[in-house]
Design a protein around this nucleic acid. Structure first.
Lengths: 183, 183, 183, 183
DNA sequence: AATGAATGAGTATTCATTCAT
DNA sequence: TATGAATGAATACTCATTCAT
């Protein structure tokens, strides 16, 4: 519901009704609306983190094909999460979060990005390329844009197109083409 | 204000005060809050469209360097708009729009994407590449992700990094790698 | 708690917690909040009655010094009660009782005043003096005023000042001034 | 209404309805319920102060008859106020005020008691008598007790009985009987 | 045309009371 | 018998909207 209508657009009684409990019951578990939305945020974020990072590890080597394999895996996991939990994903990408997220929630944010950042660092940065933080922002944004466009009906994604999109994104971050270079 | 607090988080009297008019006056110009937010949306979207498309034209040829030049120009314009009107840009990228945008506003959406789509079509699609709609979504999303990351303090963008980001994005959509092709 | 926050300002769960029982348990002993407050009232009133009247008896004679001794004793007992059970005393003097006291509680009120009234009757009323009910109200009010002023920090009472206050009050109700009479 | 049901027992919509305005209107004039009750308190207290002190002055001399005249006047004024504005008087004497009165309101309290205290000081304190603050508390309390007893139906006061009560109270605070002494 | 006071429906939150365990 | 989770009616307060001036 928060993903649909935003924090202010969602009323507590509505939430309670959807949860099939009395309004008062909600307040036995969450001190206030903000506490509730933070819990929802954390829950979603934790599941996203699991989906992305559990058992992922770092790229096994600096070699381009290892790196690509690693990236592809990440991309597939992202796709899986967005597909399985479209509402959670959409909610996590909302903007006005900042207004009500508490310290704990903000902390969590970093625990998702951090590992990606470190892994990205391991891959050799392209000579003429963009810094790793920029690349992460671009790739993440590209993925979000893809999902959003699909949600808004501007396009439809199936497995194949998701792969193609992954290929395109890999091109953004791939180290100088070794094959070309090696020659 | 809508960008900051969202539609439901922004009260009409607040808006009126910020506009230095009486609350009633607002209602002489906008039938209701929804009408107001739609007007704001259209206004922002029109300015975005101008900033992006006015005098842009289509790529002058299918050749990769022409295409790239065209893309670079677009990217620069995007950057300029996001820089000049950060609130407008942020507002346009909010998610919960869907709930209150009317037909006219949604119509406008297409008038921005449409031309990009057509222009994109002109560029030869890569053999193994993603379809044009996917690429547009990716690039647009990448740009939004970049701005958002910057707004949230995850990175800082200056002209140089924006260029680098543009380069990375171009790699996503560039026709067959020239070097490869040259082979 | 009722003395501190008033009937409406005190919540049943708060009371239960302070009593170290479950909320539900309270309702096994008191039909509702009103029944509880009435019980509290009666309990306090009964203890006040005991403190004032147990073994007090009536003045032993109409003679002024006997009457005064009787009054002094009463005054001392009042002081003792207010001192030992400040909350009970304060609670009993609250005003908004009327709204929720039941018949039994109101009945009890009379059992405290009644004996005082009768005893007062026994003392010859002064020719120019006020009727006994007025005098009782005045003295009672004077005592309450003293305690309240002390509670609010307007003055501090010790044993000596309480005695002085008793002397002043006795002057209100004393039969014809002995000295004058002696004339 | 506050006098009847106490602060917590009085609901804002009830007040609004009694005032024949919408609930929201009340909030245009009072920031919250506490602000409202403070305003009510101040309003009542100011009227009480006027009724008691306006044009009263201090006793014209230390002589007992001047002092008594002064006290009688005060007593009559008190009676007049309690009679004219029974609700205001009752409200002012409630106990749980302390919980919600703000600094300004508490300030006002002193502006009523202060002058009485000063005037009382001017009257010679009896050798064996109680200090002035105790006497004020007693007299004030006696008056309140009288009114309360009347309100609760324990007695009925008319002009004559009010005078008698005044006489009794004067006895509490009168300096040593000059006539008796002079002899 | 501009205003802002008035409004009541709507919102977050509390609390007396019930009842399954 | 004791409990405390569940509940929904009630409460303080807000806000989109109206309308007399």
């Amino acid at each position: 519901m928060f993903a649909d209508r935003g924090f202010h657009g969602t009323s507590v009684p509505e939430v309670a009704e959807a949860a099939k409990v009395g309004t008062g019951t909600l307040y036995r578990y969450f001190a206030h609306k903000e506490a509730l939305v933070n819990e929802v945020y954390r829950d979603a974020k934790l599941r996203l983190r699991s989906a992305l990072l559990d058992g992922l590890g770092a790229p096994t080597s600096y070699r381009a094909d290892d790196a690509e394999r690693w990236f592809r895996e990440l991309w597939r996991r992202l796709g899986g999460f967005a597909n399985r939990e479209p509402d959670a994903f959409r909610f996590l990408e909302m903007q006005d979060h900042v207004a009500y997220l508490d310290a704990e929630s903000r902390q969590l944010e970093l625990s998702v990005i951090g590992p990606l950042f470190l892994a990205g660092k391991l891959l050799r940065e392209r000579a003429a390329g963009a810094p790793i933080d920029v690349l992460i922002a671009l790739v993440w944004g590209a993925f979000v844009g893809l999902i959003k466009a699909s949600r808004l009906g501007y396009l439809a994604i199936d497995e194949a197109r998701l792969e193609q999109a992954g290929t395109a994104c890999w091109r953004m971050i791939a180290p100088e083409h070794p094959r070309t270079r090696a020659r």
